[in-house]
């Protein structure tokens, strides 16, 4: 890495390669510019999430009520703890990556190998955790009714103040209606599987239990969801046209559909970055073991993938804030 002053360079030396502007190698600089453009892509996603949220500021789902699961603690309300843990895991894998880069500067092959391995494990745990979060989100917890206007009606037990699951209080009605499959009837038509309970069954169960009231999407002054009185609930339930269980790109039992869309899109895009980061790290890991960089004389490749890996961590810091905290 000899950098001499430009004045003394021959023209052929300036343009003929081997010259490092900004004292950074070509590969490292291009990695940085890729990161800048990728950062702007994520900005576009997060800002459009902000757009939808500000547009529906008085009815947006409350993240603390959506993400309440922690592994092995069933039925315990644990908002945010798991994502906080995921954040720590990712920051820690960032640290091991930095340590690998540092060991690379000292040409310490054993240490680079060890720290790269830790980084890969951290990344894999993170992707797994994200998959688990998705599973819970898609499966849903209590279920809800949807009105013609696309709004969600959730159920609360007025006595205990706790959420009521439609699966528990709905009363079965004998019906011949089953999911229409392409194998029966008209061969080119089918439908998505029907929910476990029908609107009529939920309504019947709701009328039978005087303690149940409806919780709407609207937020009150203190940022809580509005809970209707029993009388208003009885009027409101007539607006329901469908049962929603869990969340997908079309329906979302937690509230606004856009929330689910952005959740899948942004955490999915980030998860894909983590996944590709893990794959790239594995490739570099094997190159380190094979001694490729030892022979090359420097571990700059580790530094470059390190930049990418830290960037993924950096994006997660923002996703964490805007999806789970704010």
């Amino acid at each position: 890495m000899e950098v001499t002053s430009n004045a003394s360079l021959e023209e052929s030396q300036v343009w003929g390669g081997g010259n490092k502007p900004l004292k950074a190698s070509y590969g490292k600089m291009m990695m940085w510019f890729f990161i800048v453009s990728d950062a702007l892509t994520f900005t576009g996603f997060l800002v459009s999430y902000g757009f939808s949220r500000f547009k529906n500021i008085n009815s947006w789902p409350i993240a603390d009520e959506v993400f309440t699961h922690f592994p092995f603690l069933h039925g315990i309300d644990a908002p945010m703890y798991y994502v906080a843990l995921m954040t720590f895991i990712l920051i820690f894998s960032s640290v091991t990556m930095v340590l690998a880069v540092d060991a690379g500067h000292h040409m310490n092959k054993a240490k680079v190998t060890f720290y790269m391995l830790l980084t890969i494990i951290g990344g894999a745990i993170f992707v797994g955790s994200q998959a688990w979060e998705w599973k819970n989100f898609i499966k849903g917890e209590y279920g809800a009714l949807e009105t013609r206007g696309g709004q969600i009606l959730q159920f609360v037990n007025a006595e205990s103040g706790k959420r009521a699951a439609i699966q528990d209080f709905s009363i079965g009605i004998e019906s011949e209606r089953t999911t229409h499959q392409a194998s029966n009837g008209i061969w080119y038509q089918d439908e998505t599987p029907l929910p476990n309970v029908s609107v009529a069954e939920v309504k019947k169960g709701f009328l039978a239990d005087p303690n149940l009231v409806i919780r709407t999407e609207k937020l009150t002054e203190n940022g809580q969801k509005t809970v209707l009185s029993r009388e208003d609930s009885l009027i409101k339930i007539e607006e329901a046209i469908g049962v929603v269980e869990g969340a997908n790109l079309i329906h979302n039992e937690y509230g606004n559909r856009l929330f689910a869309d952005f959740f899948f899109f942004i955490t999915g895009f980030h998860g894909f970055h983590v996944f590709s980061g893990v794959v790239i790290n594995i490739i570099i890991f094997f190159n380190v073991i094979l001694g490729t960089y030892e022979r090359r004389g420097h571990y700059e490749m580790v530094e470059k993938v390190g930049l990418y890996w830290h960037f993924v961590d950096l994006v997660w810091v923002f996703v964490f804030t805007f999806f789970y905290l704010v």
């Binding site: 950074a24 510019f33 702007l40 459009s48 902000g50 939808s52 949220r53």
Partner: peptide
């Protein structure tokens, strides 16, 4: 890093991100 590299990475982000956030959030409001 050198100041040149530092600025060419940080300045575009520091200028564009608040600008985009500002116009879109104002419009949403």
């Amino acid at each position: 890093e050198t100041n040149g590299l530092k600025n060419s990475i940080v300045l575009p982000l520091v200028i564009l991100i608040p600008y985009l956030a500002f116009i879109l959030l104002l419009e949403a409001d």
